[in-house]
Amino acid sequence: MDIDLLSNIFYAMVRCGTPLLLVALGELVCEKSGVLNLGQEGMMLFGAVMGFIIAFSTGNLWLGVLLAMFAGMLLSSLFALVALVFNANQVATGLALTIFGVGLSSFVGAAWVGKPLTGFEPVALPYLSEIPLIGRMLFAQDLLVYLSFVLFALVAWVTLQTRVGLIIQAVGENPDAASAMGLPVLAVRALAVLFGGAMAGLAGAYLSLAYTPMWAENMSAGRGWIALALVVFASWRVWRLLLGAYLFGLASILHLVAQGLGLAIPSSLLAMLPYVATIVVLVLLSRDKVRTRLYAPVSLGQPWQAGH
């Protein structure tokens, strides 16, 4: 393989990993606060379709991005209402959110399938983008990818360095103790869920406005679910999330690699790779029960109510 191909692969790896990174960052914060939201796929699709429709009708890509984040938050607020206020089972509610989101986005987007849109174009930073191998990967991406770098740094800083991060962690590890300390457990959890919704919406907008600027039914192709596995893969630690997202990005572009190596494998078989990789990763990381228990937020997925 020559260096150009390698540089291309790195570039595509980051592009492919970005939507995963965005959703997974949102889900990480959500899970750290003790809430398991399986609705990522639905929120992502709704964000994608709303972002596309707004950007297409107004011609303003950033307005699309903003509305996509809002759309994700809207769906996540439904989740927060049912799972946190009504105390419904979080697994079932998350599934409902995904089924609802998939249906809603196909319904809303039926008239928009296949319409052409000029999405976010790559912006190469002068000099930096010419660094061999990693220049293109880090400094010749579109603006949403740069935004994902910023958001990653922000989430890493907040969860690792700030009081807010500690509050989220306290609420997720021991809601009773956190509540006794005077922390508003449900409010913190609701905000974390909303943040997750906004990130999923943003990831959807990335798909429909930058990655492949168009709308197609189910265009997220399971990325919301893969992101859930990524959080397990990362053992709820933010730096490993970054690594994981790009590794999965790499798994999804292996057809490029295969082409580079001159292999002819049917595309449907290669399309399985990210999903197979997800299972392999889950197996490798869940095998050790003690380890999973050590890293997972203690109250993850358990309903909680004040005064019980």
Binding site: G42, V82, N87, A88, A92, L97, G103, L104, S106, E217
Partner: peptide
């Protein structure tokens, strides 16, 4: 009407069910 109305109703129904279960 888009055929996705089936899935939309499906999702709504599950959501309402979980909410009503309270």
């Amino acid at each position: 009407l888009p055929q996705a109305i089936t899935q939309l109703f499906q999702g709504m129904m599950l959501f309402f069910l979980l909410a009503c279960d309270v």
